[in-house]
């Protein structure tokens, strides 16, 4: 059992694991940024009075939210090369590389989840605020960017961050297309050295420390934003 636990395996794997962690963190942060931007657009479309905007946004969000992330990753790995061949008109186009494919897949997937959070946040801003903004003569764009979204985002920050912590955990699923994120790196060394126990437990410990610390700070933030009952 633990008497055979070989810390040396982990020590020598650290540089490779760190590369994987950089991949995981980079993917998380970029997908988070892209997902929030795209999610905000989708949320505004869903709340639009024009069916031509609200309907496609609603269909996209509901569809993506009802299928597994792994299937979404498979979909984009299949579709992105086809799309590139069409866009460039070059049947031999080489694609955009695995990192960017993963980034697009995660951004598109997370946008659907961020959209629902942002939509709820926008709806939680009292109607009177919208009316007051229009009464002052602000345009839709001004009312949205200057009055509604700032208030909405303030309320949503804890939930958006919690979702992003889950996104960080979910990036481990790039394993299914063979990419070397933190978990991918751990898994590759585990198999190469036949040290599954050490590396998987170490990976679990690292994820736990990062996610637990992050959610602790999100909780603290939430307590500061919403006064206790």
């Amino acid at each position: 059992m633990f008497s055979q636990f070989d810390f040396e395996v982990i020590r020598s794997a650290l540089p490779f694991l760190w590369e994987g962690m950089q991949f995981s963190l980079g993917l998380t942060l970029l997908a988070m940024a892209g997902g929030i931007v795209l999610g905000t657009l989708l949320a505004l479309m869903r709340l639009s009075p024009f069916a031509i905007l609200s309907w496609p946004a609603g269909a996209y969000v509901n569809l993506v939210r009802s299928i597994p992330l792994i299937l979404v990753i498979f979909w984009f790995y299949f579709l992105i090369p086809i799309a590139i061949k069409h866009l460039t008109g070059n049947p031999y186009a080489s694609g955009i590389g695995p990192f960017y494919s993963a980034l697009i897949a995660f951004t598109m997937f997370e946008a659907a989840y961020y959209c629902e959070i942002i939509r709820a946040g926008i709806q939680s801003v009292p109607r009177g605020q919208v009316q007051a903004a229009y009464a002052l003569g602000l345009s839709y764009r001004q009312a949205t960017t200057l009055v509604i979204l700032p208030q909405a985002f303030r309320n949503m920050i804890p939930v958006l961050l919690t979702t992003s912590i889950i996104l960080f955990q979910d990036t481990s699923l790039v394993y299914v297309v063979g990419l070397t994120d933190f978990m991918g790196a751990a898994s590759k060394i585990a198999r190469r050295d036949g040290r599954l126990v050490e590396l998987y437990l170490f990976a679990a410990l690292v994820y736990f420390i990062l996610c637990f610390t992050a959610s602790y700070f999100v909780r603290r933030l939430q307590e500061r934003i919403t006064p206790p009952r």
Binding site: M1, Q169, L173
Partner: peptide, 21 residues
């Protein structure tokens, strides 16, 4: 513990690690 470790990692731990420890 269970919500701060990715599901994939937990899957591997159940399958590869638990029988060893």
């Amino acid at each position: 513990v269970f919500r701060n470790i990715p599901l994939l990692v937990q899957m591997f731990i159940w399958y590869f690690v638990v029988p060893e420890i």
